[in-house]
Design a protein around this nucleic acid. Structure first.
Lengths: 130, 130
DNA sequence: TAACGCTGTGTAATAATATAACATATTTAA
DNA sequence: TTAAATATGTTATATTATTACACAGCGTTA
């Protein structure tokens, strides 16, 4: 069992904001929103984001430079993430597919590389946008 | 059969450079290298990169903001990419694994989303760095 | 062949994303 | 109770990427 992290004030403020959104937020939009709570500089945001990613509370959507809360309570650490991204409306959804996860977890290349995590992003059109 | 694209001068210069490197190159490092060939501005680089990605000649490593040549001749379009990234030496390798590709290609979520492509990045330590 | 759409070029300016460096404070662990 | 680790606040700066504008070349088509 992963030790329960105690978050600092800044980390809590930023996690709260991200958890209230069901879509990824960008660092500077977060900064804008938390200015009224006394967070004034980009670095304060980036530091909190870094920590939150590290402990698995949020994930970074690499292709969008944006951060989304992890909805999976088991996902204590940001080791393995799968997202679907609609290229029209930009809707992002975290995917938990047992079979897919197994395949990814068990994947071995032929170079003897030791994997500790992966990030998978699917792109396409969601139901609404087709 | 995909129509063979005719590349323009700028596109050729930049593709050549990327193909000569076995590791991903960043846009501004590319810019630095092609200045002697008369490419002076970031936008000239980004425009060429965009086109080269579109026609599948190169791929973007999203987590690194860098671009690598596609070594797979069949990969005419940047639909499906899998990379391994060493977090110590930053070595990046494109992975072609038939079984994995099949699983990814066949993946269906439960939201009825229609996927046109995906990007998968594995992180870990390569043989040398373990 | 003239008008149009499409793609590309070159240039300048600027936007958006992210980190370095420094001084200080707080928490954790030996 | 001191040292190590982690976090803070601030300023400045680095890095990555796009907007806007004027124009050139090429193939289509009317």
């Amino acid at each position: 069992m992963q030790k329960q992290e105690t978050l600092t004030k800044n980390q809590k403020i930023i996690l709260d904001l991200i958890e209230k959104s069901d879509q990824p937020l960008k660092a500077y939009s977060i900064l804008f929103d938390v200015k009224k709570k006394g967070i004034n500089a980009p670095l304060q945001v980036y530091r909190a984001l870094k920590k939150l990613v590290k402990i698995g509370k949020i994930h970074k959507i690499e292709s969008r430079n944006a951060f989304i809360a992890c909805k999976n309570s088991k996902c204590q650490i940001a080791k393995a993430t799968v997202f679907s991204i609609c290229e029209s409306c930009e809707d992002v959804t975290e995917i938990h597919d047992h079979k897919l996860s197994e395949h990814l977890r068990d994947f071995k290349d032929n170079k003897g590389m030791k994997y500790s995590k992966y990030n998978l992003e699917f792109f396409g059109l969601c139901k609404k946008c087709v």
